[in-house]
Computed example of a mutant assay.
Amino acid sequence: MFKTLSDTMLASPQITPDQVAEAASQGVTLIVNNRPEGESPDQPAGAAIEAAARDAGIGYVAIPVTHAGFSLPQVEMMKEALSGNDGKTLAFCRSGTRSTLLWALARTHEGEDPDAIEAAAAKAGYDVAPVRSIMDAFHAAA
């Protein structure tokens, strides 16, 4: 269920509080929730996932991304979350796509190679084409 984007980054479709233990067993020390509350009626509450994470000794941060797209503050929040975590990060949304795209933007904003980020995302089954031009602009400006 969790897809590997890098040695320190996993992406996933919606998780449940019960799956937090599985994340912990895989070395996850931070969970990033990229799904807005109430996006779907069957969606587990972010507070329940946060409580399960805290009980498991895992950090938790919510950086909701709607289908309207990404903003620079979201990218900066993701950069901060990733840089402040010494272990693996698991980011999730409905399908894992928004989490992967936000990770790609954050990494290229840090100066990482867009081609390498794109290849890693593709290997995990995700396409960064919707944000590739922004990734290139971030990389050029870094």
Rank of each mutant, 00 (worst) to 15 (best):
T89N: 02
A104V: 11
S99D: 05
D18G: 14
H67M: 14
D18S: 14
G57K: 11
N85P: 03
R35L: 12
A62C: 07
W103A: 03
I117Q: 03
E112N: 09
A119S: 13
A122Q: 11
G96H: 09
D113A: 10
L101G: 06
G84F: 02
M78P: 00
A121P: 09
G27K: 07
D86A: 15
V65A: 02
E118F: 02
H109L: 09
Q74V: 11
S71D: 12
S95G: 07
S99C: 13
G84S: 00
A11P: 04
D86I: 03
P17Y: 13
K79F: 00
C93R: 00
R54I: 15
A51W: 12
A116D: 10
L82H: 01
T29M: 04
L72H: 11
E76M: 10
A47I: 12
A52H: 09
S95V: 09
A56P: 14
T97S: 15
T66P: 01
E50W: 05
E39V: 06
Q43P: 03
A121T: 07
G27C: 10
D86S: 14
Q43E: 13
R94Q: 08
I15R: 04
Y60E: 01
P64T: 12
S12E: 07
T100C: 12
L101T: 07
A23Q: 09
A81K: 01
L90F: 05
A124L: 04
N34H: 01
R94W: 04
E39K: 05
G84T: 02
M78N: 01
R94D: 02
D115C: 05
E50Y: 03
E110N: 08
S99A: 15
G87N: 03
M78L: 01
D113R: 12
S25N: 14
F92A: 00
N33T: 01
R94Y: 08
W103I: 07
T29W: 00
A45E: 13
R107D: 03
A116M: 11
G84R: 01
S95D: 04
L90G: 03
V75N: 05
E80L: 02
A24P: 08
L10P: 08
